[in-house]
Computed example of a mutant assay.
Amino acid sequence: MTKEYSIHSFKPGLKVMIFNQPCLIQSSKFVKPGKGQAFSRVVFKNLLSGKIIKTTFKSTDILKIANIYDTKVLYLYNDSFFWYFIDIKNFEEIIVSKEIIGFKRFWLVPQLKCSLTLWKKMVISINLNNFVNLKVIKTISNLKKNSINNSMKSAILDTGISVKVPYFININDIIKIDTRNGKYVSRI
């Protein structure tokens, strides 16, 4: 039995099937004009492609619920092609391709807890905490130290990414990084 939603039930965060693909409703505005049929303006994100789509639905339209769920995992290791996780509940190994991991690979360190979003038993995205602690393995300072316009230097972290950090950060320091924008937050 498949659950369905009418346009009166649309709300942000709802995961539904649109064009046979799982989508996340980001906003929905129900409109009842003086004349004519009521409709709903919906902005949704395709969870497979990441595209944002705007569309309208008539008051008689119905959408099916997307069978999407998140599972808590522990990151183990990678071989540059696949990233290996273990499900915290049932200890099953989950293998995720480089295409799904994408840029988030720079925030993954062994034993990091995160969650994976699955649809039809396939991983479609990885969800990280907002902050991660990483070790500085190399710093590259500019010639102009203590300049007002140039108060940051480059640092290479143990995951291989380069970020801008303040001049007081040294090799082997542990720093907190915001995974949403890749910026330095603080020294640990």
Rank of each mutant, 00 (worst) to 15 (best):
F82C: 08
Y77T: 14
Y5R: 12
I101F: 06
S59Q: 12
T2Q: 12
K176I: 14
S147L: 11
L48S: 11
K183M: 11
D70A: 11
S154Y: 15
F39Y: 08
S27M: 13
S6P: 03
L116G: 02
L134Y: 01
D178V: 12
E92W: 03
K104P: 00
N170W: 12
M17N: 14
S115E: 03
I7V: 15
T139C: 13
P166L: 06
N78W: 08
K11M: 09
G13K: 09
I53L: 08
N130H: 15
E4T: 12
I156S: 05
T139M: 05
I148P: 06
H8L: 15
I148D: 09
Y84A: 02
R105I: 06
Y5I: 06
E99W: 04
S154C: 14
L76P: 04
T2I: 14
I175N: 00
S97E: 04
L74H: 05
V136N: 00
G13V: 10
L48N: 05
A38D: 09
W83V: 05
I177A: 01
S186N: 15
S28C: 12
N172S: 13
A66I: 03
I7M: 06
T2W: 07
D173F: 13
K72T: 04
I148M: 14
F57Y: 09
I171M: 11
I174K: 06
L157W: 00
S27G: 15
I18A: 02
Y75A: 04
T55W: 07
N127R: 10
I95K: 07
D178L: 12
S125C: 11
V185Q: 05
K113H: 07
K104Y: 05
P110I: 04
E92M: 10
I161C: 00
I124E: 03
Q21W: 08
L134D: 01
K98G: 06
Q26E: 14
I126R: 02
Q26S: 07
N129I: 08
S151A: 13
L118I: 08
T179K: 05
F44K: 04
L116F: 00
N181S: 08
N130T: 12
C114V: 03
G160N: 14
I52L: 13
L143Q: 12
T139S: 06
S186D: 15
N150Y: 13
W83L: 07
I126C: 01
D173V: 13
T2A: 11
T179S: 07
L134I: 10
I169Q: 04
L143V: 13
S147V: 10
S162P: 06
A155Q: 02
N90E: 11
L118G: 01
K183T: 14
I62R: 13
V185I: 13
I25A: 00
I177D: 03
K54H: 13
T60S: 14
K144N: 09
K121V: 04
M17T: 15
L116M: 00
S186K: 12
L108S: 01
P22K: 02
I18G: 04
L128R: 02
T139Y: 03
N130M: 15
L118M: 09
V132C: 05
E92D: 11
I65W: 02
V132F: 02
V43Q: 04
I53N: 09
Y84T: 03
K89S: 10
L76M: 14
I140E: 12
S125T: 11
T56W: 08
T56L: 09
E93I: 02
L157K: 02
T159S: 01
Y167R: 07
Y84E: 04
K64L: 07
S115L: 05
T179C: 11
A155D: 03
A38W: 04
